[in-house]
Simulated scan of single mutants.
Amino acid sequence: MLQTITRIPVANYSNLKARAGYSIKIDDKEIALFKTTNGIVYALENRSPHPKGGVLSEGLVSGDYVFCPVYDWKISLKDGLVQAPDTGYVKTFNIEIEKDIIFVVL
């Protein structure tokens, strides 16, 4: 069975500021976009895995990590894994950039 891949344009690369989070919504999914200082764009579910949550797009970005604005959990932008001593993960989404357009791949 073939799985359908959908590329959804969500932002202009040139409009994203480094180390800032941006919230977008695709259907029922709320996704946070992050652009690091080295120009790489990541997309994660916009919710901390802590039981009380936290909006990740409001978190601080340092290197390839975002810090939950509520509990300061350190979360990898690359794979969504929460760093020790905390545990958990956040769903990540693939990104494609074509010309100046950022696409989230679902």
Rank of each mutant, 00 (worst) to 15 (best):
P49A: 13
F34S: 08
E58M: 08
I24E: 00
T36A: 13
K35Y: 05
L44E: 05
L56F: 00
T36H: 05
G53I: 10
D27L: 05
K25I: 09
S48H: 08
N38P: 15
L44H: 08
P49H: 14
D28W: 02
D27K: 06
P51Y: 08
G53V: 06
P49S: 14
I24Y: 00
A20Y: 15
K25R: 05
K25L: 05
A43V: 03
L56Y: 00
G54K: 11
V41Q: 07
V41R: 02
A32E: 03
H50V: 01
T36N: 12
G59A: 04
T37H: 12
H50T: 01
N38A: 15
K35A: 12
K25Y: 01
I26R: 02
T37V: 13
G59R: 03
T37I: 13
I26H: 02
S48A: 14
N38K: 13
S48K: 08
P49F: 12
Y42M: 06
G59M: 08
G21P: 09
D27S: 04
N46Y: 01
S48P: 11
F34Y: 08
V41L: 12
G39K: 08
H50C: 04
N38F: 13
D27W: 04
T36V: 11
P51I: 12
S23Y: 01
Y22A: 14
T36F: 12
E58A: 04
N46L: 05
S23R: 08
S48Y: 03
G54N: 09
N46F: 00
S57C: 11
F34C: 11
N38C: 15
P51A: 06
I31M: 10
T37M: 14
A32Y: 01
L33V: 07
G21I: 08
D27M: 01
D27C: 01
G53K: 12
R19P: 02
Y22F: 15
I40K: 14
T36Q: 09
S57K: 06
D27Q: 07
V55A: 13
G39L: 07
I40Y: 11
D27A: 09
K35T: 04
S48M: 09
L33A: 08
G39I: 02
P49D: 12
A43Y: 07
S48C: 15
R19W: 03
K35H: 09
G54V: 05
Y42D: 07
K52H: 11
D28I: 02
Y42V: 02
G21K: 07
P51M: 10
A20M: 15
S57A: 12
A43T: 01
K52F: 11
A20Q: 15
T37S: 15
F34M: 06
N46I: 01
L44A: 06
K29H: 04
A32D: 07
L56W: 00
H50Q: 03
T36G: 13
N38G: 14
A20D: 15
I40T: 13
L56T: 01
R19G: 08
Y22D: 11
L44V: 10
P49R: 10
D28V: 03
S48F: 02
R47L: 14
T37E: 15
G39T: 09
G21Y: 05
D28L: 04
N38R: 10
F34D: 05
R47I: 14
E58Y: 09
F34R: 05
L56D: 00
Y42R: 04
K35Q: 11
V55I: 13
S48D: 13
A32P: 04
S48W: 05
G54D: 05
F34H: 03
L56I: 01
E58Q: 10
K29P: 00
L44S: 02
R47W: 11
K52C: 10
